[in-house]
């Protein structure tokens, strides 16, 4: 299986297209020509590095200074402080960790369910496929946001039990809020897999009938070899594109829940929770809304542009069911 070239931080001079270059290399060259996608990718890289590494260097996100209270951006606190005197920049980085993690993990959950479900339906075809996809159609028509909200409200008790159990019985005190996070992953993952299943199923269905698969069969290759050597690499393009586009959708859902007070719970924080906090206090302290909202929007913006760029670069056309 050809490996994807890793994202190099510094862009080398564009190489000329060679007649024998791999499709992945072609895609990489096309992607690099898309300035907005490159800018989005770089911005995401910087943001991720800051969020992952930043909290080790900056002031802690929890350190309160009640005498200080809310102050406007200044030299000491670049983005100001909140009403408890906590440094907003540090909280933004820490919240970003959670938001990005939720985005990646929940996308992983959705990806796993969606790809396996779609692949199975596509491979088996026939009646099984019809039944499986009819189920997806029905689920698609459901008010899923409502179920996520219900799940988050009503499973709060059990998830807190899990936290207490983790703390008192297993003595893992560092995992505060773990049950809630688990719930969040499950709830979001359960919603977002549908599109992926449709896309993968459609791709498998059309690839199955292609001549190169027939040729592979004629050559007597095993089913497994056909799936992993011949089908999967062709599926990778759409999967990468839609995974990239699922991340912002997932982050949006997390922030939506946090904004309603259902997502990440204090003392943890996420961008959505910070925006909620900021929206409540914006009348006096505008920076509490503007910076978290700005950073969050910028992240979604970058992810959308990167996803669009990848779609063009990998030439994923008409993959919409």
């Amino acid at each position: 299986m050809p490996s994807l070239s890793p994202l190099p931080a510094a862009t080398p001079a564009p190489e000329p297209l060679e007649p024998g270059s791999s499709p992945w290399h072609d895609a990489w060259v096309r992607l690099r020509q898309n300035r907005l996608a490159v800018a989005g990718g770089l911005l995401l890289l910087v943001l991720t590095l800051l969020c992952v590494g930043g909290p080790w260097f900056s002031q802690t996100y929890q350190a309160q200074n009640l005498d200080l209270g809310a102050t406007a951006p200044s030299g000491a606190h670049w983005l100001g402080t909140d009403t408890l005197g906590r440094d907003l920049f540090a909280r933004l980085l820490y919240g970003g960790r959670i938001s990005l993690m939720v985005g990646l993990v929940a996308t992983g959950v959705a990806l796993t369910i969606g790809v396996s479900y779609g692949a199975v339906a596509g491979f088996l075809g026939g009646k099984t496929d019809t039944v499986m996809m009819r189920l997806v159609d029905i689920l698609y028509a459901l008010p899923f946001t409502i179920f996520v909200i219900l799940l988050m409200v009503f499973m709060k008790g059990p998830s807190e039990h899990l936290d207490t159990w983790l703390r008192d019985t297993v003595h893992l005190s560092g995992l505060q809020g773990f049950g809630n996070m688990l719930l969040l992953f499950a709830a979001i993952g359960a919603v977002e897999w549908l599109t992926m299943a449709r896309i993968v199923r459609g791709q498998v269905l059309s690839l199955k009938r292609m001549e190169f698969i027939e040729a592979a069969r004629a050559l007597g290759f095993s089913r497994r070899r056909i799936i992993f050597r011949h089908l999967l690499p062709n599926l990778l393009g759409p999967i990468i594109v839609y995974a990239t586009l699922t991340v912002p959708a997932v982050m949006l859902l997390e922030a939506f829940l946090s904004f309603l007070g259902l997502g990440v719970q204090p003392p943890m924080s996420s961008w959505g929770a910070l925006i909620k906090d900021g929206a409540e206090k914006m009348e006096e302290f505008w920076w509490l809304l503007v910076f978290p909202g700005g950073v969050f929007s910028l992240t979604l913006f970058s992810l959308n542009f990167l996803g669009d760029g990848l779609r063009d670069a990998l030439d994923v056309r008409a993959a919409q069911d």
């Binding site: 912002p248 904004f259 959505g272 929206a279 914006m282 505008w286 809304l289 909202g293 979604l300 913006f301």
Partner: peptide, 22 residues
């Protein structure tokens, strides 16, 4: 359109309030 797609309602709404109302 891309900007519109990336700014969530719960950011846009409070910003509108901040500008137009407050």
């Amino acid at each position: 359109a891309m900007i519109g797609l990336s700014v969530p309602t719960f950011v846009l709404g409070p910003l509108f309030v901040l500008a137009a109302a407050i």
